[in-house]
Simulated scan of single mutants.
Amino acid sequence: MVSVLGMASSLAIAALPRPIPDGAVKATAGFSQPGVVRVKDLALRLSPGAQIRDTHNRIVLPSHIRGNHTVRMLLDSNGEVHRVWILTPEEAALPEPKR
């Protein structure tokens, strides 16, 4: 009985949308060299405390990400990429929140 309740609560949590701030901009980001995110023709540096979250909301190291991904991201006050959420196909299909 307890394991069924535990499984039901974890399924309910998995169904909740991720808490991505409304100010996070949607973009296609390329990860090819450490410490740099390419957006359109811009090379943006990662901030010293940058966090990148994968589609399962786990924090991943920038060196473990390659290729182009649809993301939502926040910049810090220096214009460096501070937070990145790699979007699932379902999240990518959603419109950006109104600011």
Rank of each mutant, 00 (worst) to 15 (best):
P97K: 11
L94A: 15
T70E: 14
A27F: 05
L46F: 04
G67R: 10
L74Y: 02
T55G: 01
G67K: 10
V4R: 11
L16G: 06
S77V: 09
S3P: 06
P34T: 07
M1C: 08
V39G: 01
G35S: 08
L16E: 15
V37P: 01
H82P: 00
L44E: 02
S9P: 00
D22W: 06
L87P: 04
I65T: 06
V4P: 00
P95N: 08
A43Y: 10
G49A: 15
R99T: 09
R53D: 02
I13K: 10
A50M: 12
E80P: 00
E90Y: 11
I86Q: 05
G67P: 08
T70C: 05
A93W: 01
P97V: 07
I13H: 03
I20K: 08
S10C: 09
P62K: 01
N57E: 08
N68P: 00
P97Y: 10
W85R: 11
R66L: 10
R99H: 12
R66T: 12
L74G: 03
S63F: 02
R58L: 02
T28V: 15
L16Y: 08
R66V: 06
F31N: 03
P17C: 09
K40E: 15
F31G: 00
K98R: 15
I86Y: 03
N57C: 01
M1A: 14
T70L: 08
T88V: 09
I59H: 02
A29P: 03
N68S: 15
T70S: 08
L42D: 15
I65Y: 04
G79R: 05
I86S: 05
M73H: 13
A29R: 03
P62M: 02
L74F: 04
A93E: 07
V60Q: 00
A8Q: 12
L16H: 10
L94V: 07
